[in-house]
Design a binder for these strands. Structure first.
Lengths: 209, 209
DNA sequence: TTCTTGCGTGAACATCTGTTCACTCAAGAT
DNA sequence: ATCTTGAGTGAACAGATGTTCACGCAAGAA
């Protein structure tokens, strides 16, 4: 339109699609995705309600696209973290730091996942549950290489991975719910996460069957 | 009205209030409390929309009452469990059993708390967070008497209590989300909860600072 | 008995919702 | 230069929503 360069047809379409996704993510931060309406999203994206249907069949459809985008961010983060050799050595401190920092930087995505994981529509909830399962399996592969765990049954490794992811989700929730005017809580949450993970890791050493 | 005995004025009022609460709880099982409307609740309770305002100022107000009722159920359960001397001896198996059974019997209440804890309106979320904090503190008092923990700092005890409650909530979520036609998953969830708690307890023994 | 209180009624309202339709008008193909 | 395509428009719709109001009518007080 009035943007710097003239946009190709595809570029322009992709741009409004992204605007709709951004608008939905922004609006759902206040009151939850299930609470917002197609019309609100369209207005926030600067588009007439009917135009919405050129990109998504329904709000549920938009929700699924948002799940995909959020987990793409999350997976990229984890892949980056795995490249860092330090993460293998001091896995706990790193996990706590990475977690809090990552949540702060992608607050909107984490908030979306945390809320819609239980509060969303059936389709969105299923999609998130599936993505989290994949995530647990990926983490299990990483954990299986740790010295204390290398000869555990794969069931047990999976269980530990679930315990970690579960706490990660819970801590992410806490950072998300953290009021913007209380950044002092951040260190507290981080320290809490660290201690919880240390406690779990201590359990590793005495584990049997 | 056409009920067996003639009802006093107060009894009748209390009855419709309860009907509204029950209706809201029932309806919110399908799609979440935030998704249901005042009119739906009134209709399900067999009452005209305007009558709603004789009992609650808003749906938010109803939600808070529902939080209170749900946690009253939860607290009663815990108090009963504490009287049982076995719970102190084999606390883990007991916790896993009690948890799954309790959730099954009060599925609606647990489902409400689990969902609205993150998905609900700000007021409802705050109320649930507060109740869960109280719950953590109560559990911390119980845990402080356990042999392995008796000389920990109160901060650490609190942290462990949070870890337990956090996992309890997560496991309750799983039971709630469990499809009705897959009761075989129940034993699996119970066993998972038991192993997670055992792992955490093992960490107790090696804990320092 | 008569009077008062207040729960529940039914109609009305303004507003917001999802969805449809025929339309414009510029990009890209011919 | 002309034709086709399809993203975005604006108006219209039927339905659901929260909230209000005057009213009926039975329980409990006088």
């Amino acid at each position: 339109m009035s943007d710097s360069a003239a946009l190709s047809r595809q570029e322009q379409k992709e741009r409004t699609r992204a605007a709709l996704l951004d608008a939905a993510l922004e609006l759902s931060q206040r009151s939850g995705f299930a609470q917002i309406s197609l019309r609100q999203v369209a207005k926030e994206a600067g588009v007439v309600p009917a135009a919405f249907y050129r990109h998504f069949a329904s709000m549920d459809d938009l929700g699924l696209a948002l799940v995909e985008r959020s987990f793409a961010t999350l997976r990229r983060m984890i892949r980056d973290a795995q490249r860092d050799p330090d993460v293998f050595n001091r896995i706990i401190d790193a996990a706590a730091d990475v977690l809090v920092e990552a949540v702060k930087e992608n607050k909107a995505h984490f908030a979306f996942v945390a809320r819609e994981r239980v509060g969303g529509s059936a389709a969105v909830r299923e999609a998130i549950a599936h993505e989290l399962d994949l995530f647990v399996s990926e983490l299990a592969v990483v954990l299986a290489r740790l010295p204390n765990i290398e000869n555990w049954s794969s069931d047990d490794v999976h269980m530990v991975a679930r315990l970690f992811v579960r706490n990660m989700v819970a801590n992410a929730e806490e950072v998300v719910e953290m009021p913007d005017d209380r950044p002092d809580l951040e260190a507290q949450i981080k320290e809490g996460a660290r201690r919880q993970m240390r406690l779990i890791v201590l359990g590793f050493e005495k584990w049997h069957s």
